[in-house]
Design a protein around this nucleic acid. Structure first.
Lengths: 333, 333
DNA sequence: TTGTATGCGTTATCAA
DNA sequence: TTGATAACGCATACAA
């Protein structure tokens, strides 16, 4: 491992003061052009890189931000991460990635770590902690962007990016109702997911509007994975064998539901129609191809990071972004 | 944003010295149990978190590591990231995530950023830079774990984790040859991918062993994405319409190849058999289900992080891990 | 067991 | 245009 050279190494070698070197390196005024060039040459030759720690200690700027996601192996969040990282790269920001594994305690620990690292901002996706707790956490940081989570009250340092999940659910249910499917189940994802709760609202609203009863046993929570969807669908079908439509929390659970239906000898969409959400890339590859609510997650990541950087660089704005999901009609409904 | 309290804040409040507080906080000997408890209570009450910058400046330990991947939105790397993060979390390490977007220049910039941040180690996946350049970069860091990349020479601070891609290619080709398919194309992925080059070796070796000629025009490079696979397969089929088997760089390109074949009216596996690599979760969901070479990427991530931490904590060992891919026979070949 | 002095590498402030 | 000095918050080394 290389030894790091310091400002004072360069200063000694050139017989000037540390401050002059510092000014030259940072392209600040107060150094003659000739000396500046000379200093920069020597710095480059010595492979000088300013000590992040020392600079951070005095400026309080870390050049880092934190990205908190439930599960980076879920393509929806991986694509968000991709968008965030791309924009961060352009601005020279580094990215701390934290997985919460859907675990509220672990999420709380994550905020501690990020705070200790003095990140300049955080992007929080699908937080699974209580509202009051989340608020407290957000206020610890200079700025925050909150994706897919309602804030009880506007916070001065937080921007929200929300997918209109309520509307999404209604769009999905309209499709089912047009097909005269009235036994509509809902795989609701994790109980503490706000997206799930919003979709439940839309689901209930659509049922009510159509004059259909709301049946508790037609709704089932589960982890947001293929396996979760399989189990949830099995439970639902056992409780209500007449189910002829399933709206799923996300595409992974939708795929799980399809697998369960097919395993139970039910044709999709013949016997049971299925609609997912997110439109991750696998949706067009499964059989039958998944009808789903499209959301461009990489785009969400880019918006989130750009907004965060804007706030960091020019100060707080509390814009709110609403992303409207778009129904992609494929084969499963 | 909260003001941060410091050791000296706590010290003043309790009328003790900073050092006593420091010792109490870090659970170091030299403080009476009673005082320690008292200090820790006050620290907790004040929400004290030690300044990362200050601590780093004196200890030279950042508590962070860097993960460099070509593309986090590729499930193979996302799952590696998941494994790395999980193990890092258990040990209190934070993770810098860097995407290189398959771009060698961007990769070089990434190493600069990570070095500046004084990461204690790096995990480098599928590096796309030249061997001599890679060596230079690795030696800048305290420790490195290199996934899927050959090192020309063993480096004192680097551990390699390699999937036996050469063998993988040979396993795949054996399947094709058993089916008397002799017009075997190879979608080779990015030209600078070592995995791709190793698979090419295996591909050539198997052809030679079977007494078949090697045909340059049956091999095509492409980006490691579904779209890349589609384009490459189209090119191959145009040049050599008699192709009846395709071995693909990874599952994404394999899916792309299947789509192209089907689009061209060729049945899979009837007319063209396809084998992929990695066994990402989508493989069992596509139609036909993909025959592929299974590798547990999350496991690779866990091994990589654990090895890195071992090296950081107890010092260098230069173990080398070889991961043998396992053929998962599904429908596409 | 507790405390004091010193330095990590940088930038801010003020002086020359 | 340059330089000297202090500070950032902590831990190491040594003293009491």
């Amino acid at each position: 491992m290389n030894k790091r050279s310091t400002l004072s190494d360069i200063a000694k070698r050139l017989g000037v003061s540390m401050m002059t070197v510092s000014r030259a390196i940072n392209n600040k005024p107060g150094v003659s052009e000739e000396l500046r060039r000379q200093i920069q040459d020597v710095a480059a030759e010595m492979g000088f890189q300013p000590s992040h720690a020392a600079r951070m200690l005095v400026t309080r700027l870390s050049g880092t931000i934190g990205l908190v996601v439930p599960d980076i192996s879920n393509p929806f969040f991986a694509q968000i991460a991709r968008g965030v990282e791309d924009v961060g790269y352009e601005s020279g920001y580094c990215l701390f990635l934290v997985n919460t594994a859907e675990n509220p305690d672990r999420e709380a620990v994550a905020y501690d770590s990020l705070w200790k690292k003095e990140v300049e901002g955080v992007i929080i996706c699908s937080s699974r902690i209580r509202s009051d707790e989340l608020k407290k956490q957000i206020l610890r940081f200079p700025y925050a962007v909150v994706v897919n989570r309602d804030l009880d009250e506007p916070l001065p340092n937080a921007v929200a990016i929300n997918v209109n999940d309520t509307r999404g659910a209604q769009i999905a249910l309209r499709i089912f109702l047009e097909q005269n499917r009235t036994q509509i189940a809902f795989i609701a994802g994790p109980a503490n997911s706000i997206s799930g709760q919003r979709r439940l609202q839309g689901y209930r609203a659509s049922l009510k509007e159509a004059g259909l009863p709301y049946d508790n046993l037609m709704v089932e929570n589960c982890p947001p994975t293929i396996e979760g969807g399989q189990v949830a669908a099995a439970t639902l079908l056992e409780r209500r064998p007449a189910i002829n439509a399933i709206f799923a929390f996300n595409d992974l659970t939708a795929v799980g539901a399809i697998l369960t239906c097919q395993g139970a000898g039910k044709a999709v969409p013949g016997d049971v129609a299925v609609i997912g959400a997110d439109d991750i890339y696998l949706t067009s590859l499964v059989h039958p191809q998944l009808t789903t609510l499209h959301v461009n997650s990489e785009h969400i990541g880019r918006i989130a990071m750009r907004t965060l950087l804007d706030n960091i660089q020019v100060g707080a704005s509390s814009a709110t972004f609403n992303i409207e999901p778009e129904l992609i009609r494929r084969e499963s409904a």
